[in-house]
Design a protein around this nucleic acid. Structure first.
Length: 266
DNA sequence: ATGGTTGCTTGGCAA
């Protein structure tokens, strides 16, 4: 069972790239963020033609938007509006995986704006509040009990080697100590396994995002690991592989994020 | 220290 997360940055614009990825890697399920379209505008028929016939879509016009696209039947579990902001940033399903149901939570955590100060930047306050609410919800609703996966664009790079320069990014939104602390609380609330770091040691650089603003993203390689796949303890023994599709960053008109895939054993 | 790009839309936001 292969599960992918990808911040696609407009699913309509990027449909040819999505098709290319699905044909090459053929995950069972792909979780998208920043689809940037209403549910009725989602390219379902293109995806059906590729063998992905099952959908859970939580979209909105122009901004945000998440979706789960699958070869296998899905049962919609939830579309939560964290912080009651009216943003489409979460969708959850149950899916049959290796003979037993698995809960899959797809997140697009707020980016948080430019200024890492709650007092003057409401977007940063929203990001921190969103993370607090995630922590509380994981505990209260026992989200990580049993077979569960929490993934998506969490917009935080928690480890030193999740960014190109720890020192240079300490005051840059996505890597500030307060954000890292809040994300670590999300991790601890479910006792989640960081599946990417299960396969790649923490002293090794690991990125999933490179800014559009770099003159040559590959040469400078100033990336960050903003996308994550967390699995519950019950799935720890099933972790079988990781693939970060770095090549997708060099495709024509790419997303600034690349697909991340984990494989789970039967 | 600053500015750099992209997407959704055509005026600036959000990232």
């Amino acid at each position: 069972m292969k599960i992918t997360t990808w911040n696609i940055n407009s699913v309509r614009l990027r449909m040819p790239l999505l098709a290319r990825f699905l044909k090459t890697h053929a995950p069972d399920v792909i979780c998208l963020q920043e689809t940037k379209c209403r549910d009725a505008e989602f390219p379902s028929s293109d995806l059906r033609a590729l063998g992905y016939e099952h959908f859970a879509i939580h979209g909105q016009k122009g901004y945000h938007g998440v979706a789960i696209v699958s070869k296998h039947p899905l049962r919609l579990l939830d579309k939560r509006d964290f912080c009651e902001a009216g943003h489409a940033r979460h969708v959850a399903v149950e899916i049959e995986a290796s003979g037993a149901p698995l809960a899959l939570h797809n997140f697009y955590v707020p980016a948080g704006g430019d200024e890492p100060d709650e007092a003057i930047n409401p977007k940063f306050a929203h990001k921190l509040g969103f993370l607090d609410e995630m922590t509380e919800w994981i505990r209260r609703d026992r989200i990580a009990e049993g077979r569960a996966v929490l993934l998506g664009d969490l917009n935080i790079a928690p480890l030193e080697h999740d960014v190109w320069s720890h020192k240079a990014l300490l005051k840059v939104v996505s890597h500030t100590p307060i954000e890292v602390e809040k994300l670590n609380k999300v991790f601890a609330a479910g006792d989640w396994i960081d599946s990417m770091r299960h396969f790649v040691p923490p002293e090794e650089k690991l990125f999933t995002w490179w800014s559009y603003r770099a003159a040559d993203w590959a040469a400078s390689d100033r990336g960050r690991r903003l996308d994550h796949i967390l699995v519950s303890k019950a799935l720890g023994g099933a972790l079988a592989g990781l693939h970060v599709a770095r090549e997708a960053r060099s495709w024509e008109r790419p997303s600034d994020h690349v697909p991340v895939t984990i494989a789970l054993n039967p």
